[in-house]
Amino acid sequence: MAAAAAAGAGPEMVRGQVFDVGPRYTNLSYIGEGAYGMVCSAYDNVNKVRVAIKKISPFEHQTYCQRTLREIKILLRFRHENIIGINDIIRAPTIEQMKDVYIVQDLMETDLYKLLKTQHLSNDHICYFLYQILRGLKYIHSANVLHRDLKPSNLLLNTTCDLKICDFGLARVADPDHDHTGFLTEYVATRWYRAPEIMLNSKGYTKSIDIWSVGCILAEMLSNRPIFPGKHYLDQLNHILGILGSPSQEDLNCIINLKARNYLLSLPHKNKVPWNRLFPNADSKALDLLDKMLTFNPHKRIEVEQALAHPYLEQYYDPSDEPIAEAPFKFDMELDDLPKEKLKELIFEETARFQPGYRS
């Protein structure tokens, strides 16, 4: 834990890192770190609560700039109880001085990944967590956004079992017609939660990839272990087919990539493993919904509104309290091709509203 900075004593240090967030945020305490930044909790002297502050230093890398800009653009436009918001952003007053960006968010005690390492969940908890994931996802999908990296560590939890989806750095506007060349190379989302079509096709992607990830998360809540822990690309596919069985001819016809289709045709026939054999203690309604989410063919996979209306979630289902976005989200430009200098300018502009004396 960093010592509390005395008023006016300059930035606090946390594990050798400068955290320049005073005077409003003090009493910093280390939480963890990701690929390009550290997260601390801090005391907000204005709202009198502890908050989470993520320090991001992305400006050396085009990919990190892209992810940072995506996350900020999306989260500043989203407003939903099951999606983490941005409360404040701290950065230098000029673009030349801006080396880091500090993002202030609600402090959540833990995440689903940490929880599943230590606790076996009751059916009631599984049901409530799944409902909140789908409630947040309904809003995301209504904005025409794909999260693309749903996994237990991106689901934040607090002691009252509130759940918030975080990390929109890989999110995209849904565009089933656009052929994202190089899709697989830039697709760094965790393999275990990846839909089979991501490994088999490169053309376009749809909201059904997020539903697949939610199915993987439900299976993990039922058993405290990942359902498809593939060691590499082909191993991942083999794990999936080992449980779902061989795809039907109709399902194979959806695979545009001939090499991928021929690979699947070359494999020995596998039978589907019954879900109640894998999860003998699970609620039968939970397994019915799991089956509809972990469907090989993305066109037959359940959609988020149908999933919310499934009998497993009937005690929570309330369409009048499951809000959607006001308007579909649009990125003005494809960020993939922009140089990091341009992305830095866009991050600077996007964060201006939090600067003292800002006038829109």
Score class of each variant (00 low, 15 high):
Q306R: 08
P274D: 07
G34N: 00
I243S: 12
F19K: 03
M293S: 03
K151M: 14
E197I: 08
E33C: 02
N45H: 12
S213V: 07
L222C: 06
L115T: 05
R91E: 02
A143G: 09
I89W: 05
Q66Y: 12
N154Y: 14
N271D: 00
V145E: 15
L146T: 06
T26I: 15
L116M: 12
I140E: 05
L156C: 05
G22C: 11
G37E: 12
A9E: 12
I89S: 10
N262L: 10
L289F: 03
A52T: 13
P176R: 10
A52W: 00
A6H: 13
C65K: 02
F329I: 15
E220G: 00
D162F: 05
D44S: 11
C161F: 12
I56E: 13
N27G: 07
D88P: 04
R15L: 07
N271W: 03
I90E: 01
F168R: 07
D100E: 14
G8W: 01
F228H: 00
Q355N: 07
N257H: 09
Q315S: 04
T190L: 07
N276A: 13
N262D: 06
K292W: 02
P23W: 00
D44Q: 10
L157N: 07
D283R: 10
E305P: 01
E12S: 05
E12M: 00
S266G: 15
I83N: 13
L28W: 06
I95A: 05
K344I: 05
K344Y: 12
K330A: 02
K55G: 12
D291A: 10
F168E: 10
S246L: 06
L107W: 03
N154P: 07
L130K: 04
E314G: 00
I217H: 08
D210Y: 14
P319W: 10
Y102N: 14
E71C: 14
N144Y: 15
I83D: 00
L258H: 05
Q105M: 14
E81H: 07
C127F: 14
L290C: 10
L156W: 00
D124S: 08
M221V: 00
G16H: 12
L157E: 03
L157Y: 08
A325I: 03
Y205H: 00
G204C: 10
E109A: 04
N257T: 14
V214F: 08
S208P: 00
T190S: 15
L264Y: 03
R77K: 03
E341V: 13
R67A: 11
Y312A: 10
P356K: 10
L287N: 11
A2V: 08
Y139C: 11
L170K: 07
Q249I: 07
P298S: 13
L115G: 04
Y128N: 14
L116R: 04
F228W: 08
C166Q: 09
F354V: 10
L338M: 14
D291H: 05
I133E: 01
C127R: 09
G85R: 11
L278S: 07
L112G: 05
T160K: 11
S202D: 11
E197C: 05
D288L: 06
R135M: 08
E12A: 11
V104G: 11
D288I: 11
H120T: 09
I217R: 02
G215N: 11
N257P: 08
R67P: 09
E60A: 13
S213F: 10
Y317V: 00
H232F: 01
H310T: 02
G245A: 08
V101Y: 11
P58W: 15
A4E: 01
T159L: 12
Q66A: 10
L290P: 12
L112Q: 14
L163W: 03
Q315K: 13
P311R: 01
I83L: 06
L335I: 10
H269F: 01
L107K: 01
I243R: 00
V304N: 09
S202M: 08
V49D: 12
Y233E: 05
E349K: 13
H120V: 06
E250H: 02
K272L: 09
L170Q: 13
D88G: 01
L308D: 02
K292D: 02
F183N: 11
V14N: 06
T295F: 04
P356D: 06
P226Y: 03
S122F: 06
V49P: 13
Y317E: 00
V51K: 12
L170N: 02
L112D: 04
Y263P: 03
L264G: 01
L218R: 04
Y36A: 15
F279G: 01
P23K: 00
G215E: 12
L241S: 10
K151D: 10
P319M: 06
G16Y: 04
K285L: 10
L150R: 00
L184C: 09
K48P: 11
K231Y: 10
N154T: 13
D336W: 12
T181R: 10
A195N: 01
D167F: 03
D111W: 01
L287M: 15
R172Y: 01
L163R: 05
N253F: 06
W275P: 02
P319C: 02
P152G: 00
A52Q: 01
T118Q: 03
D106K: 09
G85Y: 13
P356A: 02
V214S: 07
P176M: 05
H125Q: 14
L244F: 05
R70Q: 04
C127Y: 09
L156N: 14
S266D: 08
R50V: 12
Y25H: 07
V273P: 00
L28C: 02
C161K: 01
I31W: 15
M108L: 13
N27R: 08
F279K: 06
L155W: 00
H232C: 03
R191A: 01
E345Y: 06
